[in-house]
Amino acid sequence: MSSDLAESVRAAVAAVTDPELRRPIGELGMVRDVRVAGGAATVSISLTIVGCPAATRIEQDVRDAAASVPGIAGVTVDVGVMSPDERRALVERLRAGRPARTMPFGPDSLTRVVAVTSGKGGVGKSTVAANLAVALAQRGLAVGLIDADVHGFSIPGLLGLVDEHGRAAQPTRLDELILPPVAHGVKAISIGMFLRDGDGGAVAWRGPMLHRTVQQFLTDVHFGDLDVLLLDMPPGTGDVAISVGQLLPHADVVVVTTPQAAASDVAVRSGLVARQTGQRVVGVVENMAALALPDGTMLDLFGSGGGRDVAAALSTDDDQVPLLASIPLSATLRADGDAGAPVVVAHPDDPAARAMAVLAASLVSSGRGLAGRPLPFTPR
Rank of each mutant, 00 (worst) to 15 (best):
A188D: 03
Q170D: 03
P171Y: 11
L179F: 01
G200C: 04
L195N: 13
L230P: 02
M233K: 06
D175R: 07
D197Q: 15
F217G: 14
L174I: 03
V240H: 04
L226E: 06
L195G: 09
L177D: 04
V203Y: 04
L248V: 12
Q215H: 14
P208I: 13
G160R: 06
L161V: 01
G200E: 03
D220A: 01
S190W: 03
D163N: 11
Q246Y: 11
D225A: 15
S243F: 13
T213K: 00
D225P: 01
L248D: 09
G200I: 02
G236E: 14
D232G: 00
D163C: 03
H165G: 06
Q170S: 10
G185E: 11
G192E: 10
S243R: 07
L247D: 10
L230I: 05
L177G: 03
M209G: 14
G207F: 08
D163I: 02
L218Q: 13
K187Q: 15
G236V: 08
T219R: 12
D197I: 07
T237Q: 10
G207Q: 09
T219I: 00
H211F: 11
V228L: 05
Q246H: 15
I191N: 05
S243E: 10
T237L: 11
T219D: 01
D175I: 00
A204H: 14
G236A: 08
V221F: 13
I242F: 12
P180C: 05
L247S: 08
H222M: 00
V244D: 08
V240R: 03
F217H: 14
A168E: 11
D239H: 11
P208N: 10
D225M: 14
R206W: 11
G207Y: 07
I191T: 06
G200S: 10
P180Y: 04
V214A: 14
R206C: 08
G198T: 03
S243D: 12
A204D: 08
F194V: 00
L158T: 05
Q170K: 14
D175W: 01
Q216W: 05
P180R: 11
G245Q: 02
D163T: 01
L226R: 04
H165Y: 06
K187G: 07
V186A: 09
T237F: 09
L174C: 02
I189H: 00
L248N: 13
V221K: 13
V214T: 10
V240L: 03
E176F: 09
P235E: 05
G192I: 07
